[in-house]
Computed example of a mutant assay.
Amino acid sequence: MRHRIAALAGAVIAGAVLNTAIGATPASADVRGFSVRVTAPDDFTPGAAAKTVTAVVTSENRRCRKVRFALLLRSRVDPEQVRVTRVEDDGPFDTTSTTEGTTTTIVDDALDPGLSCRGRTVTGRWQVAFAGPDGGDVQFEVRAFDEQDTLLTAAGAAAGVEGAAGEESSPTPSPPPTSRRLRPRRRRRRRASRPARRTSPRRPTPTPRPRSSPTTCRCSGPV
């Protein structure tokens, strides 16, 4: 019975933190002296094994605090293709998640087993996988809250998902050349051009004169 009450109370608190986590974008730390470093793989391959996103919280305050993590995942990839599992050393850690638009928020149902103190870190880990076939950019943001749901610190990291949206078709290779032997072309010998003959100007043909017909003289006297 106690376990059920604790689980129910954790879910209620997680819902309140969930509303707080969604409210501010991007988040700004409410408490000085806290910081978080988020590391994520450069890229994810759809259908491949899950990869780990890690958040390490450090504190410079004398007062120690319990931490509750919230992971915000922003991407145009279909949320149905995303698999996120919060893990601790002893296995999966219960969470509550919701999706609004392109943002999916995963909040711990319970406080992290660790304790954030000066010189002592608290680490949160998430196993993230993509089923595909969509691809694109992914933004991870981790927010750390204390037991009073006060935002302590926040930070993020970016990654990419390979997929149909980012693939480029490879050029089709050209067919190999055929092994036909090419016959050498015969060179045609060009005959040397002969110099043009010099032609002397033609003389004009004389026009023949008309011959005069003999005249008959009829004379009255002696010839």
Rank of each mutant, 00 (worst) to 15 (best):
165 A>P: 01
192 A>L: 11
196 A>P: 03
181 R>N: 11
174 S>W: 00
173 P>H: 00
167 E>N: 07
193 S>Y: 06
156 G>V: 03
195 P>V: 13
163 G>R: 03
167 E>R: 10
158 A>N: 14
150 T>W: 00
185 R>L: 12
184 P>N: 09
154 A>T: 14
183 R>K: 10
186 R>G: 08
193 S>G: 11
172 T>K: 00
184 P>V: 07
151 L>W: 02
189 R>C: 08
170 S>C: 02
168 E>V: 12
191 R>I: 11
180 R>C: 10
185 R>Y: 06
159 A>G: 06
169 S>E: 15
155 A>Y: 05
184 P>C: 00
185 R>H: 07
156 G>F: 04
173 P>I: 00
188 R>W: 04
172 T>F: 00
161 V>Y: 05
178 T>Y: 02
169 S>W: 03
196 A>K: 09
155 A>M: 01
186 R>V: 12
178 T>W: 05
170 S>A: 15
191 R>N: 11
161 V>Q: 03
176 P>T: 14
167 E>H: 06
161 V>S: 03
165 A>K: 09
188 R>H: 06
164 A>Q: 12
160 G>T: 12
163 G>P: 06
187 R>I: 12
171 P>Q: 02
176 P>M: 03
163 G>D: 02
154 A>N: 04
174 S>C: 02
193 S>W: 04
151 L>A: 03
181 R>D: 14
168 E>S: 10
153 T>S: 14
195 P>S: 13
190 R>C: 04
183 R>L: 14
165 A>F: 08
193 S>E: 14
191 R>M: 09
153 T>R: 01
192 A>N: 10
187 R>S: 11
196 A>H: 09
195 P>H: 11
178 T>S: 15
166 G>E: 05
170 S>N: 03
165 A>H: 07
150 T>L: 06
194 R>L: 15
187 R>M: 06
196 A>M: 08
166 G>L: 13
155 A>Q: 09
173 P>L: 00
152 L>G: 05
164 A>N: 09
157 A>L: 02
160 G>K: 12
162 E>V: 04
177 P>Y: 01
175 P>Y: 01
182 L>G: 08
192 A>Q: 11
153 T>P: 01
179 S>A: 13
163 G>M: 05
152 L>P: 04
185 R>I: 12
169 S>A: 15
153 T>C: 15
189 R>D: 09
161 V>N: 03
184 P>M: 10
159 A>P: 05
164 A>H: 02
186 R>K: 09
183 R>Q: 13
172 T>N: 00
196 A>R: 14
155 A>H: 05
151 L>V: 04
154 A>D: 04
180 R>F: 15
170 S>H: 01
152 L>M: 15
155 A>K: 06
163 G>K: 04
194 R>Y: 12
154 A>S: 15
172 T>V: 13
160 G>A: 15
179 S>G: 08
